Simulated assay, not measured.
Amino acid sequence: MKPEVVRLGIIGLGNMGRHHVDTVLNDRVPGCELTAVCDSNPVKQSVGKGLPFYTRSSDLIRSGKVDAVLIATPHYSHTPIGIEALEAGLHVLVEKPLSVHKADCLRLLATPRQKSQVFAVMLNQRTDPYYQTIRRMVQDGELGRIHRIHWTITDWFRSQAYYDSSSWRATWEGEGGGVLLNQSVHNLDLFQWIFGMPHKVHAVCSLARYHYIEVEDEVSAIFQYYDGTTATFITSTGEAPGVNRLEVIGDMGRLVKEGNRLSFHRNQVSSSDYIRSTPEGYLTPPVEIRNIDIPDHGEQHTGIIKNFVGAILRDDKLLSPANDGIHAVELINAMILSSMHQSIVELPIQAAVYEKTLQNLIFNSHFHKTVSPYQGGFGNYLQKSST
């Protein structure tokens, strides 16, 4: 019998964990009750507003007080905590990324579980109607055959104060990567969700170009597909003002998403047909411009939690099942491998090869970090907290 309410425990009370606590405690997720919280730092007990508090994730998982957990801890711990929670029979929602590298993703996804257990990953930008519309248009063939994709995402700006705020941030040992794994994992998930996985990757990952860190803060990459489609992907946390512009070129025209605008310059005749049939040497096909009106960017994190709870209570279809989380991680791993070896990397990658590469980066690191308590404001979805 399905429960009437999902008893949720949140593990990890950093920026995102506190945001999720606030979401559930303010009744933004119907059918969900926050019943326990956990953080290794006992100072954060007050975040739970008097709820049962644990400093060990194992104790919360085995407390009997929760049916499900939301894991919002530093990246490397997603795999061991997720495995333990699944083995305990709990439903699991893991913050992005699913894991740091493909090998850990595979270990987590291989954990035996009951068919009734719900396992999801926080890929919240899948709730955005802009990207849902783009995906539908691509999959329905409105653009015809896709020739080229170009995505520049340089509006992930972060200051040195951001990186200095936590000991684990922007280190190979603590975080496992930089802009790709922390920020652009969202965009890379959307990329493969809309267009599928490429066949080859060639990337230049600039380490510490803008910040005193040891991981990448700027990336330029080229993706190749079996059908000849090519794509460029550019991202940075050091450019200001930044831009987020996705351009998709197909036989039937150009689709552009930038900021709060989505427009389709639609060819009245497919470019391939026009090339073969027109007697003109210079004129392009006639075009009609359609501006697509979309009211907002969806429910984001709250929407994913609602979907997760709905899957537990009513068997709703998951928008971001855990199995999907491995794809963006593999793309990230391939991009870093390509940059490290200055070569084109074919997908799928060998998980053990990247895991060994990462272990070598950690072993050979001489980076020394000074942590400074963060005093500034928070991002667009986070509220400033004194804890």
Results as ranks from 00 to 15, higher is better:
Arg290Tyr: 13
Ser272Asn: 13
Asn15Cys: 01
Pro295Met: 06
Asn15Gln: 11
Thr229Pro: 04
Val248Ser: 02
Arg148Trp: 11
Gly376Met: 03
Ala231Glu: 08
Ala85Cys: 04
Arg158Lys: 15
Arg276Ala: 12
Leu93Cys: 10
Ser263Pro: 01
Lys317Met: 10
Asn323Pro: 00
Leu262Cys: 12
Asp251Gly: 05
Ser277Lys: 08
Ser385Phe: 03
His341Cys: 03
Ser166Lys: 14
Thr357Lys: 05
Tyr163Leu: 14
Gly12Pro: 02
Ala110Thr: 02
His301Met: 13
Ile134Gly: 05
Ile71Met: 02
Leu86Phe: 08
Ser270Ala: 12
Thr229Gln: 10
Phe363Glu: 15
Arg314Pro: 00
Gln350Glu: 15
Phe53Arg: 09
Thr232Met: 08
Ala170Val: 03
Ser77Trp: 13
Ile11Asp: 01
Phe191Pro: 04
Glu214Cys: 07
Lys102Asp: 00
Ala328Leu: 07
Ser385Glu: 02
Asn267His: 15
Phe367Tyr: 15
Gln268Lys: 14
Ile292Trp: 09
Ala85Asp: 02
Glu216Leu: 09
Thr370Met: 13
Ile194Asp: 02
Val353Met: 07
Val29Arg: 00
Met252Thr: 05
Arg62His: 15
Glu346Thr: 10
Leu123Gly: 00
Val37Gln: 05
Ser58Glu: 13
Arg245Ile: 08
Ile344Tyr: 11
Phe378Tyr: 12
Val215Gly: 02
Ala110Asp: 10
Tyr212Lys: 15
Val100Met: 01
Ile153Phe: 13
Val43Glu: 14
Glu330Tyr: 08
Trp172Gly: 03
Gly253Glu: 07
Met122Glu: 00
Ala351Trp: 09
Arg266Lys: 14
Ile83Asp: 06
Leu180Phe: 10
Asn267Ser: 09
Thr55Tyr: 09
Ser220Ala: 12
Ala36Cys: 09
Leu347Asn: 09
Leu313Val: 08
Lys306His: 05
Pro295Glu: 10
Val269Cys: 01
Glu175Ala: 10
His186Tyr: 10
Arg148Phe: 13
His265Gln: 11
Leu86Gly: 02
Ile349Arg: 00
Ser263Gln: 12
Ser184Asp: 15
Leu51Val: 11
Glu218Phe: 09
Val345Asn: 02
Glu247Ser: 15
His150Phe: 06
Glu355Ser: 14
Gln183Trp: 11
Val329Arg: 00
Val94Thr: 02
Gly178Pro: 04
His147Phe: 11
Leu25Gly: 00
Ser77Asn: 06
Val43Arg: 14
Thr284Phe: 14
